[in-house]
Write a protein that binds this DNA or RNA. Structure first.
Length: 419
RNA sequence: GUGGGUGUAGCUCAGUAGGUAGAGCACCGGGUUGUGGCCUCGGCGGUCGAGGGUUCAAAUCCCUUCACUCACCCCA
């Protein structure tokens, strides 16, 4: 048997209704908040990700699906979307026509990590990006949008964490201050953290090893090292969130894996997800557009991990399945022939009708009707056709009535609509 | 890439003094004449992850391998 590729998955019919529910709701909110959809390809030049995400990152170093195509170009299945959005923003001169713009995009991303709960090699994201706005209220608005989505989806147990990473002006000073502290923690830090102590010391905040966590409790906070501009920026983000009563937790340990983030950074975390607890994450990336060869335009964005979001919603046990409205139990070939005609007419009237093509007993057809969860069943056999009236059974009240064959579709449609 | 756990019917799982497999759910059908959900009876359905070894005999012991899963790592 040929099976799924490791880390990839099928989204089965029993789940797609929930996916669609999320997609529709999020899309509507994005449009309400002024975002326009941008559709970007799944394949890009490898260099785009190397330059935006950073050559030192794990994503670029060992997680990308990269191959050389026949022309000799190195291509990569996108591991994230922001780089492509920025590329499109620059390539099509969007910055010239509408430097300030809000874009969103959705689709699969690819990262060759070891699969586990909430982590797949093909996973889905909804990305929102805002370009051209330095104002901290843009950051706040984006977070507001994200939390509105969370709220509308009635997602429980999800908490917002925010932090500021400073800017190229003040972050280096923090890193310098962090180093002597870390040198004093040689005993406590795990081997991994010791290795990255010099290369990327801020990442140690992310380590989940208990002793590291403990050792980092007394570490200096980036928030004490922000320059005046960054401090004021962060203050406005917070006061804006307060104003809209968005609860949040300041977490000076919240750092990002991608090099291009500056200032505001945030994540929505849900404990129920296990180790992969980030449902959404984002932040400001003021240097990225320029770094990719565009004008010096700022950007802020977030990504929602749809798979994880769905997992949370599915656990909250809410059904979005679409059940048919009507089943036609037809007895005998003549009745089946008529029923076939009717189901088509019902569907044209937006009534989801089903019937059975096997010549099964009424009992088994009733069973099927019950299993489908229809609210009404039409029962038609030779007897009914001869009498010119078929039986309409209300599956919840068990009441039955006769409906004349001529004009049947209209009468039944009305009955179902008035439910 | 590293570690732990697990791999027996579509699903959830039983099944050790080694003797060629069971349950529940699901599915199909019956319980008198053309009527569902409960009950009841029956049926369908398994190369016991794969390959090799030990043995008269292995789902059960040994080796190898693959897959799934959780965690590390990383991140949405």
């Amino acid at each position: 048997m040929i099976r799924l590729v490791r880390g990839f998955k099928d989204i089965l019919p029993s789940d797609t209704a929930l996916w669609q529910h999320v997609e529709v709701l999020v899309r509507e909110l994005l449009e309400d908040f002024g975002f326009s959809e941008l559709r970007i390809p799944i394949l890009e030049q490898t260099e785009l990700f190397a330059r935006s995400i950073g050559t030192g990152t794990d994503i670029v170093e060992k997680e990308m699906y990269t191959f050389i195509d026949r022309s000799g170009d190195s291509l990569t299945l996108r591991p994230e979307a922001t780089a492509s959005v920025v590329r499109a923003y620059i390539e099509h001169g969007i910055y010239a026509k509408t430097p300030e713009c809000k874009l969103y995009t959705t689709g699969p991303m690819f990262r060759r990590e070891r699969p586990q709960k909430g982590r797949y090699r093909q996973f889905y994201q909804i990305n929102a990006e805002v370009f051209g706005l330095h104002d901290p209220r843009a950051d706040a608005e984006l977070i507001l949008l994200l939390m509105t989505i969370v709220g509308r989806l009635e997602l429980s147990g999800a908490g917002l964490h925010i932090n500021s990473l400073g800017c190229p002006e003040c972050r280096p000073q923090f890193r310098e201050a962090l180093k002597p502290f870390l040198r004093g923690q040689t005993e406590e830090l795990c081997s991994n953290c010791l290795r990255r102590r010099d290369k990327n010391p801020m990442r140690i905040f992310d380590c989940k090893v208990p002793t590291c966590k403990k050792a980092m409790l007394d570490a200096p906070s980036i928030l004490d090292y922000l320059c005046e501009t960054c401090r004021a920026h962060f203050e406005t983000v917070k006061s804006s969130l307060d104003r809209f009563q968005i609860p949040y937790q300041i977490n000076h340990r919240l750092v990002r894996g991608l090099d291009y983030y500056t200032r505001t950074t945030f994540e929505v975390l849900a404990e129920a997800l296990g180790a992969q607890d980030a449902v959404a994450g984002g932040g400001r990336y003021d240097g990225l557009v320029k770094a990719l060869g565009g004008p010096d335009q700022p950007g802020v964005g977030f990504a929602i991990g749809v798979d994880r979001l769905i997992e949370l919603l599915a656990a909250q046990a809410q059904s979005f399945e679409r059940r048919p409205h009507l089943f036609i139990a037809a007895l005998g070939l003549r009745a089946q022939d008529t029923a076939f005609q009717w189901v088509q007419e019902f569907r044209m009237q937006k009534v989801r009708a089903e019937m059975d093509f096997e010549n099964r007993s009424l009992k088994s057809q009733m069973r099927r009707a019950d299993k489908l969860g229809v609210s009404y069943t039409l029962i038609v056999g030779d007897r009914e056709l001869d009498d010119g009236a078929v039986v309409l059974r209300n599956m919840t009240t068990k009441e039955q009535e006769n409906v004349p064959v001529q004009d049947l579709v209209r009468l039944v449609v009305n009955r179902i609509r008035t439910e």
